[in-house]
């Protein structure tokens, strides 16, 4: 019997396959109906624009005239003669290495520590750590790191005698990237952090009880044997959000240390794309830049989901 079935599969024609497919589509009508509202808007306002934007990297497009196909020339220029792009790759990597993993660990660690507190304190601390995501006030950071004596950081250091003259935090090439990283970290306890908080709240209490019976003695063991294994999906969500925010960072630097930053010290790939897209109106070149960044993020995402796959569903 089993043998016949196997032979049948081998002999199945394309037409039959299509019919089977159609049959299973019809069987799952309810699924498609429930997907439809979201997918309709998603298709029109995300998929269509994304697909329209894909070929732009191979064109010369200045927004005034229709895009002109120029093959791979944007990409060859990027890697062979755009020195600032090469510089921006280095900045992006340093930036992502500092903010990405650190902020990811911080998101998880803080979500966990908050979970250890009394319920009333949980709301308060979650609010405190998430607040920067709701009010990303670059202006006050500019005041803190202002280059004159009026800056809070400078005034603090001078009063303590740690500095004799104001430090140019936002323009000195030595400090620009560091300051940007601090502010990026400050702002980075965002979506991933909240998702992890929700994940903690959803862990079955009886798991803790069972753990206690089976000999779990302290917080650390509980974290490793109970909490992390049941947080796979949230950890994956936070990882994706982290990849996006640390690789596409650019707004923080632009708002804080100006554009372009001193000696391109805080010039990320996204800033470079902004430069070509919205300052020089070379949209084709800018989308080639974005495309390279996307490929990198996609590969990294694949890697992380492989690492986390053992905790998945």
């Amino acid at each position: 019997m089993a043998k016949i079935a196997a032979e049948d599969i081998g002999k199945r024609t394309k037409q039959e396959e299509r019919r089977m497919m159609w049959h299973s589509v019809k069987q799952n009508k309810a699924c498609y109906l429930m997907l439809a509202p979201f997918m309709l808007f998603f298709l029109v306002f995300t998929i269509v624009p994304v697909v329209m934007s894909l070929p732009m990297g191979f064109t010369d497009f200045n927004m005034a005239q229709a895009p002109k196909f120029i093959g791979l020339s944007n990409y060859t220029t990027l890697f062979l003669s755009d020195k600032i792009f090469v510089k921006s790759i280095r900045v992006t990597i340093v930036f992502a290495l500092f903010t990405g993993p650190l902020s990811y660990v911080l998101c998880f660690l803080l979500a966990w520590l908050i979970n250890e507190l009394h319920p009333k304190l949980k709301t308060l601390f979650t609010l405190i750590f998430y607040a920067p995501s709701m009010a990303p006030v670059y202006t006050t950071w500019q005041m803190i790191f202002s280059g004159d004596m009026n800056g809070y950081a400078n005034s603090f250091l001078i009063n303590l005698g740690l500095a004799n003259s104001p430090i140019q935090w936002l323009t000195d090439a030595n400090y620009v990237l560091g300051v940007t990283i601090i502010v990026q970290l400050w702002i980075s306890l965002g979506a991933g952090f909240l998702a992890l908080r929700a994940g903690f709240q959803n862990i079955d209490r009886s798991m803790y009880e069972a753990g206690a019976i089976e000999g779990i003695r302290n917080r650390w063991q509980e974290l490793i044997y109970i909490v992390i294994p049941s947080m796979g999906p949230q950890l994956m969500f936070a990882a994706v959000m982290q990849i996006v925010s640390s690789f596409t960072a650019g707004t923080v630097a632009q708002n804080l240390v100006g554009f372009p930053s001193t000696d391109y010290k805080a010039h990320t790939i996204m800033t470079h794309a902004f430069d070509y897209g919205w300052v020089r109106y070379e949209m084709g070149y800018a989308s080639a830049i974005c495309m390279i960044l996307f490929v990198v993020m996609y590969l990294l995402n694949k890697l992380i989901s492989k690492v986390l796959s053992k905790y998945m569903d």
Binding site: V50, V244, F274, A286, S287, F294
Partner: peptide
Amino acid sequence: IIVVALLYQSNVIYIMQYIV
């Protein structure tokens, strides 16, 4: 596709959205 859409950031998307 959902994850790819999250990762795909491009400066021209807003223009395309506007066109749509």
